[in-house]
């Protein structure tokens, strides 16, 4: 069994209004060192596969088909053994 951690973020070229709103609030808190905020999604998958390579392939298929929308989002997948 493997644990896949999927990070889905808006593409760099796309304005992230949620991130911008959070950044604005952080500035109001006086955390002015924070120069940029991007908000995405963290998705965890438990995958029953025979190898980490196979688990990664399955997770990437899941991203391509459902978990991320390639028009506006990028994703990364990391695999850990359970």
């Amino acid at each position: 069994m493997y644990k896949a951690t999927v990070n889905v973020t808006l593409r760099k070229s796309i304005l992230d209004p949620k991130g911008k709103a959070a950044h604005h609030a952080l500035q109001n808190l006086g955390l002015n060192e924070i120069e940029n905020v991007r908000i995405g999604k963290l998705i965890k998958l438990d995958i029953d596969a025979e190898s980490p390579e196979r688990a990664k392939k399955i997770a990437e298929d899941a991203c391509n088909q459902l978990l991320a929308n390639e028009v506006m989002e990028d994703f990364t997948v990391t695999i850990d053994e359970q």
């Binding site: 808006l10 796309i14 304005l15 209004p17 949620k18 709103a21 929308n69 028009v71 506006m72």
Partner: peptide, 9 residues
């Protein structure tokens, strides 16, 4: 295409 959140959230 795709839909993003409205610009003013």
């Amino acid at each position: 295409g795709a839909m993003l959140h409205n610009k003013q959230l």
